[in-house]
Amino acid sequence: MDYALESLIKIAIVLGVIITTVAYVVLAERKVSAYIQNRLGPNRVGPWGLLQPLADGLKFILKEDVIPNHVNKAIYLIAPAAILVPALMGFAVVPFGDTLMVVGREVQLIISDADIGVLYILAVSSLGVYGVVLGGWASNNKYALMGGVRASAQMISYELSLGLSLIGVLMIAESLKLSDVVNLQATGTVLGVLPAWFVFNQPIACLVFMVSVFAETNRLPFDLPEAEQELVAGYHAEYSSMKFAMFFMAEYAHMITASALIATLFFGGWHLPGVDPTDSSFALSVLKVLVFAVKTAFFLFVFIWVRWTVPRFRYDQVMRLGWKYLLPLALLNVLLTGLYLTLNR
């Protein structure tokens, strides 16, 4: 019973934090894009525009909710939920801190430290495509359908390199548990000076993973499913009001989960060099959570940064990059890691 209660509280907190972060990442995106383009960005609602997400949310809720006559209603209604839910589910196995003493009991700062953590992430990320495909098909609109077809092809292609890039990491970690992956990175060093983060152990895997994750989240330079200039808005062209907002939130929730995963798998998670990973005093535990938050925030910034500075790929370029460069690169990484592990046995 205690365990169930503890899990429920953790789920509630994590969901709350993610939803709030989504709102503020949207604001951050508008601010950063403004600075990149030498503008000021939203600054009218509240100090420095900090209340802008609130105003945006209200606007979305109060807009008229149009359901066009020509759509396939049942699937049209399912699609926004089908894209938002997997985006939020991915966070369930991400360790956002070590352990924390709360009212006399040691709480592991992870919702579920499942044995199949990494597989769970791959499973959930592979479900994200449904919302896009169904939304595009149900809209009964050629632009939306094109977006849906593009999304399914793109996401299946990049899932391969996403999964294969993780194999090198798993070969070293010898565990599918994300907490084990982080603990391994928190101990020892690479070449004597660098922390044992997988970005230094597995640079190829890190590169392939980051590029694939960009493709999986449908962010520029891989935003072909929604490409404004070619497809109007792609799969969500026919959506309005809160349903559009759900697609929008899903994109940012995906980004947050992806950033957290990059930080966890390749950048040591909550580990800060110089901090004793075994010490679980209250102050250090809170510091670890903060370190994790800062790392995640940094990768969110990278997502935004890339979006506003890199142009979109052509469709054939996306397919060529995925199949002819990333996939062989990921396989090469598996081979090299295997060779290294065999020779060092």
């Binding site: 597989l119 479900l127 449904y130 495909v133 169904l134 399914s152």
Partner: peptide, 15 residues
């Protein structure tokens, strides 16, 4: 099961 069937095979069918 989720990765192979739900994530790849059924998406291929829909595609």
């Amino acid at each position: 099961q989720i990765i192979v069937y739900a994530g790849a095979v059924m998406v291929l069918f829909l595609f």
